[in-house]
Design a protein around this nucleic acid. Structure first.
Lengths: 126, 126
DNA sequence: CAGTATCCAATATGATACTG
DNA sequence: CAGTATCATATTGGATACTG
């Protein structure tokens, strides 16, 4: 397999390329939240447990630069910014959905019923 | 999303779980090579450009521990070891194939015809 | 041949304080 | 509210030398 160089980065193969675009700890969680609706910065942060301001900002910046999301700034006080999926971002959702189902299967094989865990957490919050 | 803890590791979500099992730089390349046939250590190393001995050993060890590959040691001199996919490993190939196709599409959008690059490299070697 | 062991560099992520 | 800037830490990967 030949190496590919783009924007001064080296990609070893197509999977490496895909995962350098939407992989890492936070890109898929952010895209996944946006599949439902347009969200503002603080809203995304509230929805994703553990994510720091630094990583959220960095993740949003890269996803926008790579064309997966759109950013709309409203000239208001206090400022408001809204993020939404592009068509390219919506294609990525299919990949995330596929990977997510595979992950759920792997977890079941390991004896973890994740969907049930999610249900239990909902009940606690009510 | 609740966190999941298994073997002293924290997983944030199902995608995180899947990619901690078959993600990283080298696991998918190794699994992908084994989809064709059983291979020995040195054979895998020759097929995967850039991979170091350390990373190959570590990758094989983790894939075996997680049940994606089988390791068979032959009591010969010099020693011979063969690695092959398990049924779980063959399921992972489907995921890799999916991700690979997505990566090829992303590359095309970025103006990179990877399949053509692979063809050109073959011609050079002949 | 098929690994181990050790040390080092690069990158990814986190914590904290500050700002238009 | 939506960031930036800086410093610290953790994880990953690479280089090199050695071994049953």
């Amino acid at each position: 397999m030949p190496d590919v160089i783009l924007d001064n980065k080296v990609f070893y193969n197509p999977v490496d390329f895909a995962l350098k675009k939407i992989g890492g700890t936070w890109k898929m969680p952010v895209l996944w939240r946006l599949r439902i609706k347009t969200m503002r910065y603080s809203e995304i942060q509230e929805h994703i447990k553990h994510i720091s301001q630094k990583m959220l900002t960095q993740t949003l910046k890269q996803l926008e630069a790579d064309g997966f999301i759109d950013k709309k700034i409203f000239a208001e006080v206090p400022p408001r910014t809204e993020y939404s999926l592009t068509e390219k971002g919506r294609k990525a959702i299919e990949v995330i959905d596929y990977l997510r189902n595979y992950g759920l299967n792997l977890m079941l094989e390991a004896g973890i019923n994740y969907q049930e865990m999610v249900e239990q957490e909902k009940r606690k919050k009510i």
